[in-house]
Design a protein around this nucleic acid. Structure first.
Length: 305
RNA sequence: GGCUGGGUAGCUCAGUUGGUAGAGCAGAGGACUGAAAAUCCUCGUGUCGGGGGUUCAAUUCCCUCCCCAGCCA
């Protein structure tokens, strides 16, 4: 990607949205969200979209950009993000990509092999089969590929079979290996000490209920297969159906969000090379904004040109 | 004050007919190439409430003390 882009990535509830908005306000930039669930319209509270004031402060892209009954995918996101970045750059501005969806970010920075779009009925057909049956089929069709993937993970096996069915060639042969580091990709990875991050998550989930998540979820009926995986959607629906109490609902959502944040931290530690910034060690919000801004400016205006 | 249960991992508890202990949950680490807020894998040493006694050996049996819950005064 040879575009004018800077990344701000981090786990949920780390405070990256506020940071990104404040950084953007001080340099000639616009924000492109890399969040797999904030892209959907109609669930601003549940998906913890930035508040109205933040959205108004600087230009945001890909927040509430697709209908909740639409299916999303990493490739679809990549297309939308590349278009948004191109448009921002054409206006002479820097695109600040901010988000926490690891695969979406990687699809954007490292690219994906050209493959046909997902076939929903094929996927449903494969999902109906047992893991044993799926594995047997994969071994028959792509023995070397079968050795490389996690065969206890049904998703992975199904995906490999989907690709074979759609292209008549093994998925492993079409995979485009990702380079360790894309040279022109620059950004920061913000995080916080674990106990502080978890406290912020717990607090934010509790706040969602005061803000009316229950009403928000009750008012939305048609959600796609991908959108319905939004953290908390299932729990809030169970609460609305009277199957669990509101405090059980809150506790379950807090726990699920904590586990999600942990997975994000693993991903960013292992899968990206961005410069790390521990916000727990920063003097205050302004200091963190200054730190990031300095990185952005040194990137946008290299001294050696 | 008396009686009855209990006090074992961060929490809820199991267990050892005496040979220093293990589940669930919480938590931690990891994987990840079009579902990614998804999906999948791995990880259990703790004065077994304190002190004393019996014993080759006590978390287990006995005595005593402390704490918690319930009931009776």
């Amino acid at each position: 990607m040879n575009k004018n882009v800077f990344f701000i990535v981090g786990p949920t509830a780390s405070g990256k949205s506020e940071l990104a908005a404040d950084v953007t306000a001080r340099c000639d930039a616009e924000i492109v969200s890399a969040d797999a669930f904030q892209v959907y319209r109609g669930l601003p509270i549940l998906t913890a979209q930035p508040d109205e004031a933040t959205l108004r402060k600087v230009q945001h892209h890909l927040i509430g950009a697709v209908s909740p009954n639409e299916e999303m995918s990493a490739e679809k996101f990549r297309g939308l993000a590349v278009a948004a970045i191109g448009e921002i750059n054409r206006r002479g501005k820097l695109a600040l990509v901010v988000g926490g969806s690891g695969l979406y970010l990687k699809a954007l920075t490292h690219g994906l092999a050209p493959l046909p779009a997902v076939d929903a009925s094929l996927r449903a057909e494969l999902n109906a089969l047992s893991l044993e049956e799926l594995n047997a089929r994969l071994v028959a069709v792509d023995p070397s590929g079968a050795e490389k993937i996690d065969r206890r993970n049904k998703r992975r096996v199904v995906r490999a079979l989907e690709i074979f069915a759609q292209t008549s060639a093994p998925a492993s042969a079409q995979r485009r290996e990702w380079e360790d580091e894309a040279a022109d990709v620059r950004g920061v990875f913000v995080f916080r000490d674990r106990t502080e991050l978890y406290a912020r998550i717990d607090q934010r989930v509790a706040q969602m209920f005061r803000d009316g998540v229950a009403e928000e979820v009750a008012g939305i009926e048609d959600v796609s297969k991908t959108a319905e995986k939004a953290l908390g959607l299932d729990q809030v629906r169970q609460m609305l159906d009277g199957k669990i109490t509101s405090s059980e609902c809150i506790a379950e959502m807090q726990q699920a969000t904590r586990r999600y944040a942990k997975r994000q931290l693993t991903w960013f530690r292992r899968q990206t090379n961005f410069e790390a910034l521990n916000l727990s060690l920063q003097k205050d919000h302004a200091a963190a904004v200054d730190w990031i801004l300095q990185k952005v400016l040194s990137f946008a205006h290299p001294l050696n040109d």
